[in-house]
Every structure is written in structure tokens, then in C-alpha cells.
Design a protein around this nucleic acid. Structure first.
Length: 957
RNA sequence: GCCCGGAUGGCGGAAUUGGCAGACGCGGCGGACUCAAAAUCCGUUGUCCUCACGGACGUGUGGGUUCAAGUCCCACUCCGGGCACCA
């Protein structure tokens, strides 16, 4: 009759009813339905083309919906109950939307390259390829047991050569392109070469392109390519044995992985020209449905600021500064260079040489955290050199100080002590002049408790003045005159015009964002598809020579160093493999000897495009078929005209706000510019789920102890008799407070775990795990099950009649509410409404079939296994996955009679029941006649009666 | 220091546009079943006053707007997160 799995009584050790919904029965149901879904390929979603195409199914399914989780790295310790919070949310949403008729793409891959996997391998002595596969298998098992409705055909691992072949292909594509500033998009490098060849474009430095040697041409092109090798200051982390990106360095100058010190060193490394996209990465945030918090973080990281570039002539050549306040040039009485600035040597006078050298050494030795600590007093040294202020013509002293950072702007500033607090403090410390160039208001003086000063005198000022105020002492003989203006914006634009006209500078936009350091000196990553010829010129391998396989070796451990020894050099593990490094290849001009690049890509590479591979996971000709890509990722202008396209719902933790999410947007935009994808953004809607928190306990050595062995006595906590201190933390192995989902499956089953995690609170909020609370959802499922099934016989016990009016109305109100709540990812309130309905029908003498069927469908996205089981028991032959989600009858959402609270002076004194469409005067009369209202009024005539239709009545006495 | 969030019973959390504060769950209390316990089920549960009817108080603090404020405005306190010598 049905191919749904059959129910067998579960043997019980106790005398509990054989068909009570308990952990054993739940497990039985869950394993059977998981097998059923696999066998029937229930969650496979059809593509419009290629091997996953299925025209009939596509016709059936309706509009596409791409739901995506941030994919995990396959950890060696497996999952704890905190990991799947987001996955349960996306699974529930996906199941709900399938019932709403959408063609849902939902799968899960593994971000398996990178440091964690490599470190785990080093610890266990196993090759990372082996441990990674084992860990993936274990995580797949745990996720499968949770009942996640993934299309398993679409799962990928970034470590699979069939996957990273295309990661290398995208690298190749980026390498072979350049950013055309005029067209404001990336274009193939071949088109740039063609422009140089034809003379349409000439070299900036005036050289003749045609006269350059091949190597020289390559050097020119390298300055245009979006992936290039640079010799520049990078973040060297001896403790990890590799360089890391700016985004991977914490505010206190340490690696976010491993927490080792990071040092700035000049090194030859691969970079990606993400800065070319700075503006678009900011602008396109506007069309994304992301939280403002994440958008703000990305904007701050890119750090766009408007200002001016100004050149100060000096004996050592012009010193170029960036300033956001060119209007304060008249107040620039000295300059400050970062200690590492290249002009320092040339500017330093013989008398100051010793002091300058000593200061530079001290600055270099300082840890980043000390250098960027703005609470410390400012230090610096005079170089003995001077530069010319272009607006005043004055010779001003040039200092070096470590509060000026080489990594921002030009590494040099003009100091305006009257208008910048840092410069002010520096000038006070070293007795430099602080002439005023704006006249602050008397209020400003009042706020700082000093007598107003006029003119240049600032001797009594406690701080610099920042803001709008009339300019003074701000005119020169070459036609720049700000005096009389009092608006900073006007001052800035006037000054910029003058600077440009006189050739001293020009308006500029500066960014905090630096190019992305893309190479790592580790083993477990994607090899660069790059070789060097005997002249040292880099060649990217042609498509047909990809993938460049990561070579097999036993010596995959990185060379790491004393974490504090900055004077070390990175050594790539791949460097040791001479046979692999030295190759003879035919790149079109016959077999030639080459050396392979021995770097690997950062972990972020694989996660920059994985969502695209889900679409077409087995394609061997392209990273994704164009039609398939357009179907799943294309912009949806039916939703809104500026829809950017991309993933419809992307759920993950907030910790990737500027790492993965920035890099992935950058790659996607390059692919978009080159016509390889149809959406300008990868993730249209981003939702940040919260974390599961758990108490963690530390002993007096500050070491975490097993949280499950801690006892509480009178508000104090003890571990093995010793007092310990409690703190909040994310759940995790390192805090020794992790609860495994396997424990929950054993005690309650997956459906209960799913319901509990969804009921704890809003999905975007962090919440503390309480194992003892889980039983609430278990009891709910038991009650729900008992409403339909006889616990002793396992037979259906539904009532053979139509629901009463009250039940019917509650049912439809619940349908209405649950649909809306689920649409908005508010699963906690969906569950509350379903429990409310279930509690109501529990009191009935038997639940009508129509009610139990509707409830089963509504609960199915949240607790799919038990609902499938009931659905089958109710006589249905097929999975409920594609049953339409119940819809509410609008006529049943409005009641004939309604109860209204009656307030007297804002306090509820009684209730009246009136017809829903009763006129106001009738409601008013009923309200005043209510016993307790009348008593409260005590005969006094009401001053006013406010009737809020359908809501309430307020009597003003 | 700057920018975002947030604060509601013993606990997690609910509350369209301002309109019955505390939905739902945990825990507590009382009861049923049981020799007993666990599990399960039923009832009850913001605090205080009252035998009761009922009343007073109550959404971090202090003001304000309003017939009516958890919700809006002003000023603060505390907590979480992000950024931070960014010129």
C-alpha cells in the first residue's frame, strides 16, 4: 500500500506503553525516515541544465530559492550542539519553503584546507588528507542524524582536486585580468596588451611599449594584474611559520589563529588587488539585505576618507602627505614621518643621525600593541631636516614618531597642532609652536573653563580645536584666502582648488583597505598554478594543465620558529620537494625548464566561490554552467529593481564580517566583470545567527575544568571540592563545556533537539544552553503524538468528526501566525503558537483528522521525522516534503463576538463581550454598564470615553 | 574615545502602527498514578495587601509627551559586540 517505512513497536525495558513517544521510538522513527529520504532522493533539487537537470521536476517546483549555510571546516572533535543552530534554522526554512512551492537549493560542503586541519594532522601525525576525510565523514554522519534536508549530490570539499582545479582556474582568471579605471571594471589582460600594442594606450612613465623586452613588458603588466607579486611590508608570523593577511591580524598585533606575535617585514609575496574594488565594495552594500552592523564593519574596514594629497618640498625631494583637512595647511607647523619612511635617511642631519637611528631601532623592536596604544605619551625625534609648507612658504621641522603609521596614507603627515589632538599633544611635549588658525566660539572656551583667546595665541588651550569656526591667519600672497569663511567644507574645497592650480597637490580619496596578501608558507592549501622561467618571470599555467595537484609528502609540517624571533624567514613545505618544484613544461613554446611557485593559497580561497560549485558540482568543463548559474544566482528584479542577485538567504556567524565576506564579494565581482557570473553580489541576504553559550569554569590556576563535574552550593561553585569561578563562553571543546548532539539523540531524539534549539529564542540572538530545559520540547512532542496515536497499540486515535467552532478558529489563527513567523525566521514564536494549539486540542475528547493533519504539516519543517511518521499513519503514501503548507481561511480569522478590556484612567477594571462590528456608542454603553467599571466610577460622569475598535475601551474619569 | 546592539518574573524568552505586560518553555508549589521513586498526567505560579470580592505596585535609573508608554522624547547607569594614534 505504501512505500513509507513501517512502524514496529519499540522494545521497552520499563513498563511504559509500547508506543509512547520516547527516545527509543524517536530514534527508530528518525533512522527510518532518514533512510527513506536518502532512498527516494527526496531533497534533490533539479537544475535547468546539465547532469542535475530534470525538466519535469523543475516544472513542478516553482520559483527557485537558494538557502546557504556558511560551510564548516571539518574539525577533529566533531560537532557540539552549538554548531548546528544555524543549520537547523536553514533546514527548517528550506523545508517550509519547499511546502510553499519553492525549488529550494540546500546543501552543505566542507572548508577543509587551512591551518586547523593541518594542525590537527601535525598533532596526530596523520597526513591531513586522511584526517580531513575522516573528519568530513564524521561530520556528515552527525549532520545526517539531525535530519538536515541537504541535496547530497551538491556537497563539495575544497580539498578535492576536482574542486580546487576551479579555485586555481579563478586565480588564473584573476591573474589574467586588470582593472580598467575608466570602465570601472575588470577586463582581460590580453585587452590591455592589445591597447599597448596598438598605441591606443601608452605607458605612464613615457617609455615606448614596443621597445621593451619581454621581461620588461611582463613587469609593466604586473603593475596592472589583479593578482601580482609584490615586495612590500607584510605580516610575518614566525610562530605559524607563514605570512598572514591584514584581516587575520588582531588589534593587538597577533595572529587570529594561534595568537602569535606578528611582525612587519618586507617580503616577496602574492597580493590580490582588492583595493581596485574598494568603492564598489562600499557602494553595493546599499543593495544588500544585510544587517547595518555588518555593513558598518565592512565600511569601516575599507575606511574610505576624502581629503587631499599635498606635497611638501624638501632637500630630500617632495614629502607627500594625505590629509582630510587641507584647509588647516596654514596651521601646519611641522611634519611627522613614520620611523620606517623611506625619506628619513635622506632628511636626517649628521647631528641627529644617532638619535634617529636609536629611535628607529626602538620603534622596530616595539610590539604592535605598544605602538598603537593611544593612551601612552607621544614620543618622537627631530630629524634635523626641514620641508617647505606650500601655502606659507615657511621652513618647518620634520620629525619622526611612531604615532604615524607607515601602513596608512603615505606614512607621513603634516602636523596641525591647533586642530588635531595628537599633533597638539606632540607639540606640547616637544615645545613646538601651536598657532591658531580658527577662532573658536566663546562657548568652546567656556566648556573648557578658560578665558577666550584671540589671534594665534593658544597658550591656555587644554586641547586642540576641531570643528567649524571662522578661519584666521589663513591667507597667503598667492591668492589663497580662507579668512572670513567659517565652514570647514568650504575651506577644504577652496584649498583643494588652490593646491591643484598651483601644482602642490590635489583632492584625493584614501582607503584604509590594503591589497590582500594571498600567499601562505604552509602545506595544506591550494598550490599556485604558477611557474617561473629561467628569467624569473611568472607564468600562470594554461587551463588544460590544471589542476596543479598538491604533491604527496610525509613532511607536511610547516617550519615554525620562536614566535618572538622576527629575524626569521618563511620556508614553504613545498620548497623541500625538488622533484615537484623543478619541472619541464610546454607552455606553447616547446618544453622548457621551470620552477613551480611553492606557496599555497590562504584558507579563504576555497570559500570565495563555493556556493557557485553547489550549483553544478560535477561540471568538468566550467566552474559552473552559465544557464545553471543564471537560474540560481540571477538578479530578481521582480522582487525589487536593484536586486543584486545571488544567494537568497545566507546564514552564518558574525565573525566573518570582514574576512570571508569581503574576500568572497571581491572574487565574485571580478567574475561578474568578466562575464562569468550574472549577479554582482554573491549573497543578497545575510543573516547572522547567534551562538550557543554555556557556563565555563576556571580553577585558581586559570585552567578550565570539566563543566559537567562542577557542583553549585549556595551560589558558589566547586570542582572536586575546590572552589572555581564561573564565566560565560561560547560552547566549545577548549572551555570543556561542550554537549554533543549524540547525547541528545540518545536521550530525546533529533526532533526534540531541533525543536529545543529553535525554541530557545530568536535565531540571531545568542542563548545559554540548559540541558534540563530540553525536556519541555520532548513533552510537547509526546503530547502531540498522543493526540493522534494510542500509546499502547500504536493505532491512530483520531476523532471521526468535524472540529468545533472554537478549535477551528484557533487552528486557522495558528496557521496564519505560523506561516508569517516561519517566513521571517521566527521559529521560537512559531513553536509557541503550535504548542498553544496542541495544548488546546489535548483537552478535547479526541482530535479530528483535519486538525491533526494540518498540525502535522505545520510542525513538519521543525520536527520532520515524527511528522512524516504521523503523516504516513494518517494514510498518506508519500513524503510530506512537498505537501502545500496549510493556508488560513480569512473568514475564520475574524470573530463575531469579541472581548474588550475596559480601562478607567488607563487601568483595566473589567471586560465586556460585544459584537465585532458593534458601533462605538453601543460599546461605550456596554463599557460604562460593566459592574466593576461602574463601581470604580462611583457615579461620576466620565469626562471622555475612548474606543479603539477591536482593541479596548478607556474611560477617562 | 567612537560606532552598533541590548536590559521584561527564580531562568530562557513573548508582546502589529503606542492599546489587556509576562504568550510558550524550564524551574517551583499542590495533586493523580505508584509499595515507593523516576517517567507521565492534571492544577497552580510577577510581587505585596486581603478569608474573599477586590486593590496597590511592577518592563535598568530619573524626568517628559499621551486618554493610554516595555514601545515615543530627553538625560543617565550597566552589559554585550565592533573599531580605535586612520592623519
Amino acid at each position: 500500500m505504501t512505500d513509507a517505512p513501517s512502524t514496529d513497536a519499540v522494545a521497552e525495558t520499563s513498563d511504559a506503553p509500547s508506543f509512547r513517544y520516547n527516545a527509543a521510538l524517536a530514534q527508530d522513527i528518525e533512522l527510518r525516515w532518514q533512510a527513506y529520504w536518502d532512498e527516494h532522493k527526496t531533497f534533490e533539487s533539479p537544475n535547468p541544465a546539465g547532469p542535475l537537470a530534470d525538466a519535469a521536476a523543475l516544472e513542478d517546483r516553482g520559483e527557485k530559492l537558494f538557502v546557504l549555510d556558511m560551510f564548516p571546516y571539518p574539525s577533529g572533535s566533531g560537532l557540539h550542539v552549538g554548531h548546528p543552530l544555524g543549520y537547523i534554522g536553514t533546514d527548517t526554512y528550506s523545508r517550509f519553503q519547499r511546502m510553499r512551492g519553492r525549488n529550494v537549493l540546500y546543501s552543505m560542503g566542507f572548508d577543509a584546507f587551512g591551518l586547523p586541519a593541518e594542525q590537527f594532522a601535525v598533532q596526530t601525525g596523520q597526513h591531513p588528507a586522511i584526517t580531513t576525510d575522516e573528519n568530513i565523514a564524521n561530520m556528515r554522519r552527525q549532520l545526517h542524524r539531525l535530519g538536515l534536508s541537504h541535496d547530497k549530490r551538491r556537497s563539495i570539499s575544497t580539498t578535492d582536486p576536482a574542486y580546487y582545479r576551479w579555485t586555481q582556474w579563478i586565480f588564473r582568471t584573476i591573474f589574467e585580468s586588470w582593472y580598467d579605471v575608466d570602465a570601472d571594471k575588470a577586463r582581460p589582460i590580453a585587452e590591455l596588451v592589445a591597447e599597448f600594442d596598438s598605441g591606443e594606450r601608452t605607458l605612464d612613465d613615457g617609455r615606448d611599449w614596443a621597445a621593451l623586452s619581454g621581461t620588461e613588458k611582463e613587469q609593466v603588466l604586473a603593475d596592472y594584474r589583479l593578482a601580482y607579486v609584490s615586495h612590500a611590508p607584510v605580516n610575518w608570523c614566525p610562530g605559524l611559520g607563514t605570512v598572514v593577511a591584514n584581516e587575520e591580524v588582531t588589534a593587538d598585533g597577533r595572529s587570529d589563529r594561534g595568537n602569535f606575535p606578528v611582525f612587519k617585514r618586507n617580503m616577496r609575496q602574492w597580493m590580490m588587488r582588492i583595493t581596485a574594488y574598494a568603492d564598489r565594495l562600499i557602494e553595493d552594500l546599499d543593495v544588500l539585505d544585510w544587517t547595518d552592523a555588518i555593513k558598518t564593519m565592512q565600511r569601516n574596514w575599507i575606511g574610505k576618507s576624502h581629503g587631499a594629497t599635498v606635497h611638501f618640498p624638501s632637500a630630500a625631494g617632495p614629502i607627500t602627505v594625505f590629509t582630510t583637512r587641507p584647509d588647516t595647511l596654514f596651521g601646519a607647523t611641522f611634519m611627522v614621518l613614520a620611523p620606517e619612511h623611506p625619506l628619513v635617511d635622506a632628511l636626517t642631519s649628521p647631528e641627529q643621525a644617532t638619535a634617529v637611528a636609536a629611535y628607529r631601532d626602538a620603534a622596530a623592536a616595539k610590539k604592535e600593541i605598544d605602538r598603537t596604544d593611544d593612551t601612552k605619551a607621544k614620543t618622537g625625534v627631530f630629524t634635523g631636516g626641514t620641508a617647505t609648507n606650500p601655502v606659507t612658504g615657511e621652513e618647518i621641522p620634520v620629525w619622526i614618531a611612531d604615532y604615524v603609521l607607515m601602513g596608512y596614507g603615505t606614512g607621513a603627515i603634516m602636523a596641525v597642532p591647533c586642530g588635531d589632538q595628537r599633533d597638539f599633544e606632540f607639540a606640547r611635549t616637544y615645545g613646538l609652536a601651536i598657532p591658531a588658525i580658527q577662532q573658536p566660539s566663546s562657548e568652546w572656551f567656556g566648556e573648557h573653563g578658560i578665558e577666550p583667546t584671540t589671534g594665534a595665541d593658544t597658550s591656555t588651550w587644554p586641547v586642540a580645536f576641531v570643528g567649524d569656526a571662522p578661519y584666521i591667519n589663513s591667507a597667503n600672497e598667492s591668492g589663497l584666502d580662507l579668512n572670513g569663511l567659517s565652514d570647514v567644507a568650504a575651506g577644504v574645497s577652496t584649498t583643494n582648488d588652490w593646491l591643484e592650480a598651483d601644482g602642490h597637490g590635489h583632492a584625493t580619496i584614501n582607503y584604509k583597505l590594503r591589497d590582500w596578501l594571498f600567499s601562505r608558507q604552509r602545506y595544506w592549501g591550494e598550490p599556485f598554478p604558477v611557474v617561473y622561467d629561467t628569467d624569473g618571470v611568472a607564468h600562470v599555467l594554461p587551463e588544460d594543465q590544471l589542476p596543479v595537484l598538491l604533491p604527496e609528502t610525509d613532511s607536511f609540517a610547516p617550519r615554525t620558529f620562536d614566535p618572538n624571533d622576527a629575524d626569521t624567514d618563511p620556508e614553504s613545505p613545498l620548497d623541500r620537494l625538488d622533484d615537484w618544484v623543478n619541472v619541464t613544461l610546454d607552455l606553447g613554446d616547446g618544453p622548457q625548464p621551470y620552477r613551480r611557485d611553492t606557496n599555497v593559497m590562504p584558507q579563504w580561497a576555497g570559500s570565495c566561490w563555493y556556493e557557485l560549485r553547489y550549483l553544478d558540482p560535477t561540471n568538468e568543463n566550467r566552474f559552473v554552467d552559465a544557464d545553471v548559474e543564471r537560474y540560481w544566482m540571477g538578479p530578481r528584479t521582480d522582487e525589487r529593481p536593484d536586486h543584486p542577485g545571488g544567494v537568497d538567504l545566507y546564514v552564518g556567524g558574525v565573525e566573518h564580517a570582514v574576512l570571508h565576506l569581503l574576500y568572497a564579494r571581491f572574487w565574485h565581482k571580478v567574475l561578474f566583470d568578466l562575464g562569468h557570473v550574472s549577479s554582482k553580489e554573491p549573497y543578497a541576504r545575510l543573516y547572522n545567527q547567534g551562538y550557543i553559550l554555556a557556563d565555563a569554569y576556571k580553577d585558581d590556576r586559570e585552567i578550565y575544568v570539566d563543566a559537567f563535574a562542577v557542583e553549585e552550593r549556595d551560589g558558589e561553585f566547586f570542582y572536586e571540592g575546590q572552589p572555581v569561578t564561573r564565566e560565560w563562553g561560547k560552547m566549545g571543546k577548549s572551555l570543556k563545556n561542550a554537549v554533543s548532539p549524540d547525547e541528545m539523540y540518545d536521550s530525546y531524539g533529533a526532533d526534540t533537539l531541533r525543536l529545543y534549539e529553535m525554541s530557545m529564542g530568536p535565531l540571531d540572538q545568542s542563548r545559554p544552553w540548559e540541558t534540563r530545559d530540553v525536556v519541555g520540547m520532548y513533552r510537547f512532542l509526546q503530547r502531540f503524538w498522543r493526540n493522534a496515536v494510542d500509546e499502547d497499540t500504536g493505532d491512530l486515535v483520531i476523532a471521526d468528526r468535524d472540529p468545533d467552532d472554537e478549535t477551528l478558529r484557533l487552528l486557522h489563527r495558528t496557521i496564519d501566525a505560523v506561516g508569517t513567523e516561519m517566513d521571517n525566521l521566527r521559529f521560537n514564536t512559531s513553536i509557541a503558537k503550535l504548542i498553544e494549539l496542541n495544548n488546546h486540542v489535548t483537552k478535547l475528547d479526541g482530535v479530528p483528522r483535519s486538525v491533526i493533519e494540518t498540525m502535522t504539516l505545520m510542525l513538519a519543517p521543525l520536527a520532520p521525522h515524527v511528522c512524516e511518521e504521523l503523516w504516513a499513519k494518517l494514510g498518506h503514501d508519500e513524503t510530506l516534503t512537498y505537501e502545500p503548507f496549510p493556508s488560513a481561511d480569512p473568514a475564520l480569522l475574524v470573530d463575531d463576538m469579541i472581548e474588550l478590556p475596559v480601562q478607567v484612567n488607563g487601568k483595566v477594571r473589567g471586560r465586556i463581550t460585544v459584537a465585532a462590528d458593534a458601533p462605538n456608542d453601543e460599546i461605550e454603553a456596554a463599557a460604562l454598564a460593566e459592574d466593576n467599571v461602574a463601581r470604580t466610577l462611583d457615579g461620576a460622569a466620565p469626562k471622555k470615553v475612548i474606543v479603539v475598535p477591536g482593541r479596548m475601551v478607556n474611560v477617562v474619569a
